[in-house]
């Protein structure tokens, strides 16, 4: 379970860009998973895929609530930079590059790179086609590489 918890947490950190929120959402994800474990069908995907789908639903609700809250408070701007760190001791350039990605791009990176889900599983979690998933991943990685190359030069 510890391995799955790490995976879900990593995914949520990348998706939300907020470690505190990711922690709460991970707990909520597992609470839901324990409650609905009877619905898990191993023929339809691995436990990790199933957990990520739950995590995504939970995170989307959080995103919506956050958007409403920010609108209410009228402090929401798209230019507000994320201050949280995505990785543990991740090079600063890569942290910056990750911040520049959209949540949609970060989550595909998390699913495919960190959680090492295969293409079909990641696409199933995201609710998009495999082609769209691959395109999104390659675009995100290219942006990260470009940013790193800039730093290396």
């Amino acid at each position: 379970m510890a391995e799955q918890l790490d995976a879900v947490y990593r995914y949520l950190v990348y998706l939300t860009g907020d470690r505190a929120a990711a922690e709460d959402l991970a707990a909520e994800t597992f609470e839901k998973a324990f409650r609905t474990w009877r619905r898990f069908d191993p023929r339809r995907g691995s436990p990790r895929t199933w957990l990520c789908k739950i995590a995504r639903t939970v995170a989307i609700d959080w995103f919506r609530a956050e958007t409403r809250r920010r609108r209410r408070e009228e402090t929401y701007t798209r230019d507000v930079p994320l201050t949280e760190e995505f990785g543990d001791d991740l090079p600063g350039a890569l942290e910056d590059a990750l911040r520049e990605l959209s949540p949609a791009e970060r989550e595909v990176v998390a699913l495919r790179v960190l959680l090492e889900l295969d293409g079909p599983s990641a696409a199933r979690v995201l609710g998009i086609s495999q082609t769209a998933c691959s395109t999104r991943l390659s675009r995100a990685l290219r942006r990260l590489e470009e940013r790193m190359d800039d730093v290396r030069e």
């Binding site: 379970m1 510890a2 918890l5 790490d6 879900v8 947490y9 990593r10 950190v13 470690r19 922690e23 991970a26 707990a27 597992f30 609470e31 324990f34 760190e85 995505f86 990785g87 543990d88 001791d89 991740l90 090079p91 890569l94 990176v109 790179v113 960190l114 990685l141 990260l144 590489e145 790193m148």
Partner: peptide, 25 residues
């Protein structure tokens, strides 16, 4: 490579979260 870096420095769930989930379990 970027992918290796991301994997190497992937965040781990904090102990507080592990305790919370364990309590849920």
């Amino acid at each position: 490579s970027v992918e290796t870096l991301l994997r190497t420095h992937a965040p781990n769930a904090p102990e507080s979260l592990r305790a919370r989930v364990l309590a849920l379990e």
